[in-house]
């Protein structure tokens, strides 16, 4: 029992060191307390924020944007990637667009999207979709290209028609690659949601962050950053959970 605790402490020592250093700096008072609060007071504020209704309202709005944007990107990206791997014509049409669009910072389009779709959820969801589409399409495409030809030949040999081959062979064999793309996309979705809410919004956790920071009380801001980090962690691990359910053979 004691050994387990010691092992845990040794494993997570860097977090402890970070925590201690932070507390020492805060305690010695090199920086004014308003700028560099002790982490204990940050946790106190964090609990206060978590029990407030405002936080949950904002969180649900941000989650709505993240999840809708992400799902649209997945619903468009996965079939597109799969079809690109099967139909050469589509591939030659889409591939150049992808390789040109990939290095371009698409976030820069946001102010223009606000002009078109307004300041509400529409512009944010569209930008999230746009940003998530790239990793999903690219990794689905490469995953589908790498499906072992023997599997396809074998299924064709055993008389599978196109539809059956797609559902029973191609899709399951590509699932791991699809999830790689989705796992890359979900943090992006949250980043874009928070970012766009910080730039211009009247609701959402990004807005709450900016709102709290305008009071210049650093405890509030740090607590909010921690909360956003926790949300990101939960999002990623719930996707991992779904992945383990789907890809049971790995």
């Amino acid at each position: 029992m004691l050994k387990k605790v010691v092992d845990k402490v040794v494993k997570y020592q860097s977090i402890l060191v970070f925590f201690l250093l932070w507390e020492i700096i805060a305690f010695v008072g090199v920086l004014p307390e308003r700028l560099f609060p002790s982490l204990f007071s940050v946790f106190g504020v964090l609990l206060e924020i978590v029990v407030s209704a405002i936080f949950w309202d904002n969180l649900s709005i941000t989650m709505y944007r993240v999840i809708v944007g992400f799902l649209i990107a997945a619903a468009l990206g996965v079939p597109l990637g799969l079809m690109m791997s099967r139909y050469n014509f589509l591939n030659t049409l889409v591939q150049p667009m992808l390789s040109i669009g990939y290095p371009i910072p698409r976030v820069a389009l946001y102010p223009i999207l606000v002009f078109i779709l307004g300041i509400g959820s529409g512009s944010k969801i569209l930008l999230i979709t746009l940003e998530c589409l790239f990793p999903i399409v690219i990794s689905t495409y490469y995953g589908a290209m790498r499906v072992n030809h023997l599997f396809i030949w074998a299924s064709q040999n055993m008389g599978a028609n196109d539809r059956k081959m797609f559902w029973k062979v191609l899709l399951p064999a590509t699932t791991p690659a699809i999830f790689t793309g989705l796992r890359m996309a979900i943090p992006l979705a949250l980043i874009i949601a928070v970012l766009t809410e910080m730039i211009s919004s009247t609701e959402g956790i990004g807005y709450q962050l900016v709102y709290l920071s305008s009071s210049l009380v650093q405890e509030n801001v740090l607590a909010m950053v921690l909360l956003i980090g926790i949300v990101g962690y939960i999002l990623s691990s719930s996707l991992d959970f779904i992945q383990n359910k789907f890809i049971f053979w790995k």
Binding site: P187, Q218, V221, G229, G232
Partner: peptide, 15 residues
């Protein structure tokens, strides 16, 4: 630290 959207740190760094 990796899953935290780093842009959220901007208000802190600004102060």
């Amino acid at each position: 630290i990796n899953p935290i959207p780093k842009i959220a740190l901007l208000p802190i760094l600004m102060v």
